[in-house]
Simulated assay, not measured.
Amino acid sequence: MNDTLTINKHDTREGYQSDFDRIAKVLLNHFELTTKENSYRIREIEFYYYSVIHKDFYCHKNERQLTNQKLYFHRFKDPEKYVRLKQKGIDITFGNEETVYGGILIRSIENIKTSEIITGIGNLTNQIISDIDGTFSIVELYKSDKNIFDSSGFVYLKTCQNNELKIFKKHRQGLNLKKEDSDKFYLDLKYNYFTYPEIEVLT
């Protein structure tokens, strides 16, 4: 199994930032998200990780996020209804198959051939769905359940030359304070990583 998404054990919730920094550097500069139609440079991601030590209350904790190195399409249940659903999103999972939920939300991608940057998780998800011939292909993708690094999958991560892009960090986007996060620790974390300066860096 590829160890790119490996999370180390930490004694404090603060310790996980170093793992996310490391993974973000690799995903944003050394891999392309690839379909049969296109290859994309990943330009923006966010980390969501819930464990005994790191209780990220903003993680969906969907059972799909218990898997590791797979794709998780947010709120996917019925392929006919999903095509009309506005609140879509795609995670690369990095759970531990037991009690740890992990998802790396892809927020922006850049088409390698056209240099078009696609932002917004709904727009991005629709583009990937179009590349894999529609929502019914998600059913097949889930059934085959291939590793995200397996090039025979519908969507996979392919290694590329080092892009050497500068990586910026900011707060995760679109979150509302949850009562469980009483000290705003998880709300205030800079778990959003991106590589194009057009996005305002939040301080």
Rank of each mutant, 00 (worst) to 15 (best):
D3T: 15
D3H: 13
L5R: 07
I7K: 02
R13N: 03
G15T: 11
S18R: 12
D21G: 08
D21H: 11
L28N: 09
L33T: 04
T35A: 15
T35H: 15
K36A: 09
N38T: 14
S39R: 15
R41P: 06
I42K: 02
Y48N: 03
Y48M: 06
Y49E: 07
D56V: 01
F57T: 12
Y58I: 05
C59G: 02
H60C: 08
K61R: 03
E63M: 10
R64F: 00
R64N: 07
K70A: 07
F73T: 09
H74Y: 13
H74V: 13
R75H: 10
K77C: 11
P79A: 04
Y82C: 04
V83T: 06
K86R: 07
K86D: 15
K88M: 08
G89R: 01
I90P: 09
D91Y: 02
T93L: 04
V100S: 08
Y101P: 04
G102W: 09
E110L: 08
E110S: 11
I112T: 14
I117F: 04
T119Q: 12
G120L: 06
G122H: 12
N123Q: 03
L124E: 04
Q127F: 15
Q127T: 15
D131A: 05
D131N: 09
G134W: 01
T135Q: 00
F136C: 05
F136W: 14
S137M: 02
V139P: 06
V139M: 10
Y142A: 11
D145C: 02
I148K: 01
I148W: 03
D150H: 04
D150R: 07
S151Q: 00
S151D: 00
S151L: 07
K158Q: 04
E164D: 14
I167H: 01
F168Y: 06
K169R: 12
H171W: 08
G174I: 10
L175W: 10
K179W: 14
K179T: 05
E180S: 05
E180T: 12
D181H: 09
S182N: 13
F185V: 03
T195N: 07
Y196N: 15
P197D: 10
I199G: 10
T203P: 14
